[in-house]
Simulated scan of single mutants.
Amino acid sequence: MRLLMLGGTEFVGRAVVEAALDRGWEVTVFHRGRHAPPAGVTSLIGDRTTGPEGLAALATGSWDVVVDTWSAAPSAVRDAARLLADRVGRFAYVSSRSVYAWPAAAGLAEDGPLVEGSPDDGEVPYAEAKRGGELAATAAFGADRTLSVRAGLIIGPYENVGRLPWWLGRIAQGGPVLAPGPATLPIQYIDARDLAEWTLDAVAAGLSGPYNLVSPPGHATMGELLDACVRATGSDAELRWAEPEALLAAGAAPWSELPVWLPPGEMFDAMYTADVSRAVGAGLRCRPAAETVADTWTWLESLGGTAPQRPDRPQVGLSPEREAEVVAALGG
């Protein structure tokens, strides 16, 4: 198989590229040159944010599949898809479960109501951008040649958003660690490498249409994730669990100050109760949480403990001062 990866030097794109190389696929990476692509690929330099002229390096060539993770202006997806439609077999767009109209009901499958979006949009909010990207890909390639991978929370090696890296860094410091409970709270996420493997399997099998792509309900809990962080780092951290009601009363912000964690309620239902039966039926396999955590820690250690941070995403996690404030408010 010949793969064209739009991006491919960071996080999800890099995971896709490495998975394809492991399969012996021929891989071309189109990127801006800000980061070195993996060894073994053909590298094409361009900048799709500058409009069609930034795609000049893609003016020739043909591939079996193109994978795109773009999450900004949908018009960039549109321009690339139009340019490639006659020279590429299939288009896989890594979208998001954020495309579902808010609030997304518990147990929502792929036929749920969607946000408005347009393939011609410029800079728009994330949900509308991802929906516009889906529409752009489908308009150029047709529904039968377009795969929309609606991912939820993505973690694993190369993460440049900071959620799992923050927990690993905090727990590596040791001592008492504020842990948002209950420990039995189920979470849904996808390791970027499992997303990559499933996506490549799907395009090779000729699948099309939308698929929710996160782990099945019950795959992991908040407690299992943080316990795995303690084991991976080998620290003397002591997880001190606090109940959701107490944390909210103490002013702790779910998701941002306490990454990954959401209290039971509307946001939890939207993020952590997705129906993924379609993807499971199409071969989705998710590695254990302990493996994802351990491999992410190994990667972090190789970088000296500091993960890269996407400039378009805010920093996450409690500062030491904020953690002390929340613990004090909890009476600890």
Rank of each mutant, 00 (worst) to 15 (best):
E197R: 15
D120H: 15
S118I: 09
G142Q: 09
L225T: 14
P103Q: 06
L226K: 15
L164P: 02
P176R: 15
D194H: 09
S215M: 12
L178T: 10
L147R: 11
A179R: 02
Y189N: 01
P182S: 01
L178I: 13
P119D: 03
G156S: 09
I187C: 09
G162T: 07
G133I: 09
P125M: 06
E116N: 04
A136I: 05
V149Y: 04
L178R: 02
V177P: 04
A85E: 03
L226R: 14
A101G: 08
D121V: 00
P125F: 03
G112P: 14
L225W: 05
A143F: 01
E159I: 10
E134T: 04
A101W: 08
G174F: 10
T199R: 14
A129Y: 00
E159T: 10
R193D: 11
G142F: 04
V94N: 01
L114F: 00
V124C: 08
N212S: 05
S98E: 00
A140D: 09
D194I: 03
L164M: 12
C229N: 14
A172N: 10
A106E: 13
G107Q: 10
L207A: 11
S95V: 09
D201N: 15
V161P: 00
P216N: 06
R170C: 12
Y100M: 02
S96E: 02
P182I: 03
A228R: 04
L200K: 13
A136R: 10
R231Q: 12
L207E: 07
D121H: 13
R193N: 15
A105D: 02
E128G: 08
S208G: 08
P125L: 03
L108Y: 02
L213M: 01
P125K: 05
V94W: 03
E224L: 08
D86T: 15
W167K: 02
P186D: 10
A192L: 02
G209V: 01
D111S: 10
P176A: 15
Q173A: 15
S98F: 03
P210N: 07
D144T: 14
L108K: 10
P216G: 07
L114T: 13
D111Y: 01
I155F: 01
Y126Q: 00
R170T: 13
G162M: 12
L207R: 15
L153Y: 06
P176N: 14
W166I: 11
A105H: 07
G169R: 05
A139V: 03
N212W: 03
H219W: 10
D201I: 00
L153W: 07
E110Y: 05
S208D: 12
I154A: 06
L84Y: 07
L153K: 06
G132D: 03
T199Q: 08
P182W: 05
